[in-house]
């Protein structure tokens, strides 16, 4: 398999993984005020792609953050326990924003690689034209 196609397959798998991560960040942010919500975490994993015979990346397990949730006194809330306390979500907006930034940065790097590979391929094709 030609290395440019391989590069494209790998870079595309990276872009997909980062885009998914961004999606999970969006879910967490949207639910930051949902009582009882646990923050979702994404892990990446390596995968062998048969079509391009190469090592690509994929989304591994989606986990739930077991971190502590703040308890607030809200006796009128439907989720309140016997003492009238409700657990808020354990989403930290700052952490999510930082995560989104990192995903964004990795995504951009992948795009850069993709366009570089395309340029290399087209300049190789140029030599065939003459």
């Amino acid at each position: 398999m030609n290395p440019f196609a391989k590069t494209s397959a790998i870079a595309a798998s990276g872009l997909r993984a980062q885009a998914f991560r961004l999606q999970v960040v969006a879910q967490n942010l949207a639910n930051s005020d949902t009582h009882g919500y646990r923050r979702k975490t994404v892990t990446f994993d390596q995968a062998f792609d048969r079509a391009s015979q190469t090592q690509t990346v994929r989304v591994g397990r989606i986990g739930l953050d077991p971190g502590p949730r703040e308890r607030v006194f809200e006796p009128g809330h439907p989720l309140a326990d016997a003492d009238g306390y409700v657990e808020k979500s354990n989403v930290n907006v700052l952490t999510e924003i930082a995560d989104a930034r990192e995903a964004n940065r990795s995504y951009e790097a992948g795009l850069q690689i993709l366009s570089q590979a395309r340029q290399m391929y087209s300049s190789l094709l140029e030599t065939l034209k003459r």
Binding site: A11, V57, A103, A109, G110
Partner: peptide
Amino acid sequence: LGRHAAERHSLIARNVANADTPGY
């Protein structure tokens, strides 16, 4: 040299794609 550069670029693409893979 051309083949080497293309293979190397492919390997770097793998590194970049795995920039957030634990243990890579």
